[in-house]
């Protein structure tokens, strides 16, 4: 697994050849089919893809949160060198919320509507460490203060419905940060928020990762957010990573035709009034994936060779790799 940083330190998380399949009545849905990722201390990795690309299932698989009829059928997930795919449910339980935390799109999903914020935060603390009530309350208060919630002492006694959407998401982030996890997986956490509130949360997350050295995987469909936030990016399409590299490198020099099309479809200043590049067709169904490269039917460069599955290969260097036989020429402006 090549790490962009190429650092001597071991990456916090290493995912290799991860496969998560769902065995439905209609057939086997290969939502995640051979995904490799790594993320190091203090690094932000953006995982970008459209609906149904398998980006969220990748996140859930890392935490071992795949329910029937789904199953991790192959690959490995190593957190600080410890294998998670074969870990016991008890061990996973002790890791989740302590070493790995997750932030979801809808904070109402993570917060219990009938319990005070205080109760929920203290519960999270006491699930993993022996701590008295007063001390736990103090830590909860500090955590709320750190994510920018005004008068945290009073807000501890509030219920989730008394918070606005942005504040609820901050509470969810505060809970995720309680134990100082090594890894946070954030699944579209700002998608439901307004622009100014989203910006506040992005800025706080950036600072917190830098200060605490937490590794972060930010799952989103929005390349624009990732380009301003992440260090590295991995683009997913139909269950596989099709391009990965340092964010500036991928954005300025996309090599996979899908990434190229995706960047071209984002409306922006320099394309005002012109037609947007559109990727023809739509994301294929997992039940009837085309043979070989899943993007081939929508791809302008596809030919007979694309009936085979290309490897994620250096393009041009090991730090920037794309899964394509006919990558876009270097320096092609999207």
């Amino acid at each position: 697994m090549s790490d962009v940083r190429g650092g001597a330190a071991q990456p916090t998380l290493v995912v290799e050849g991860l496969k998560t399949h769902f065995f439905t009545e209609a057939g086997v849905v290969k939502s995640v089919d051979g995904v490799d990722l790594s993320v190091s201390r203090g690094e932000i990795l953006g995982l970008v893809g459209e609906s149904g690309s398998g980006k969220s299932v990748t996140g859930f698989s890392i935490l071992g949160l795949i329910d029937q009829p789904g199953r991790i059928v192959g690959g490995s997930v190593k957190l600080n060198g410890e294998e998670l795919t074969t870990a016991s449910p008890k061990r996973l339980r002790s890791l989740r919320g302590d070493r790995i935390a997750m932030i979801f799109q809808d904070p109402m999903m993570t917060l219990n509507p009938v319990l005070k914020i205080e109760t929920q935060m203290i519960e999270t603390l006491q699930a993993h460490i022996k701590i008295g009530h007063a001390e736990a309350r103090a830590r909860a208060r500090d955590a709320l203060g750190r994510v920018g919630i005004p008068s945290p002492e009073e807000r501890l006694d509030s219920y989730p419905h008394q918070f606005s959407g942005g504040m609820r998401q901050r509470v969810a982030i505060a809970i995720a940060l309680l134990h100082g996890p090594d890894l946070i997986i954030a699944d579209e956490p700002t998608t439901a928020l307004d622009v100014t509130i989203q910006a506040q949360i992005l800025s706080e997350v950036q600072t917190l990762c830098r200060e605490t050295g937490t590794a972060l995987i930010w799952i989103t469909h929005d390349l624009a957010i990732i380009s301003g936030l992440a260090d590295r990016v991995a683009v997913m399409y139909a269950g596989r990573i099709v391009e990965t590299g340092a964010i500036a490198e991928v954005v300025s020099n996309p090599r996979h035709p899908y990434t190229y099309g995706l960047i071209g479809s984002v409306p922006s200043r320099n394309k005002r009034g012109q037609r947007l590049t559109q990727i023809p067709g739509m994301t294929p169904s997992f039940l009837s994936l085309p043979q070989g490269c899943a993007f081939a039917p929508r791809c302008p460069n596809a030919d007979a060779k694309c009936l085979e599955m290309p490897e994620l290969s250096p393009c041009p260097s090991a730090a920037h790799r794309a899964r394509c036989f006919h990558p876009m020429p270097e320096g092609a402006e999207a």
Binding site: D194, Q198, A199, Q200, E204, S227, G228, L229
Partner: peptide, 24 residues
């Protein structure tokens, strides 16, 4: 001005988010 400064855009540089405080 605040809206435009906080609008995520595709660029090769890290963006400084969050110049505006408070909620709607």
């Amino acid at each position: 001005q605040a809206l435009l400064a906080n609008m995520p855009r595709i660029s090769t540089e890290k963006q400084a988010f969050g110049q505006i405080k408070g909620e709607i």
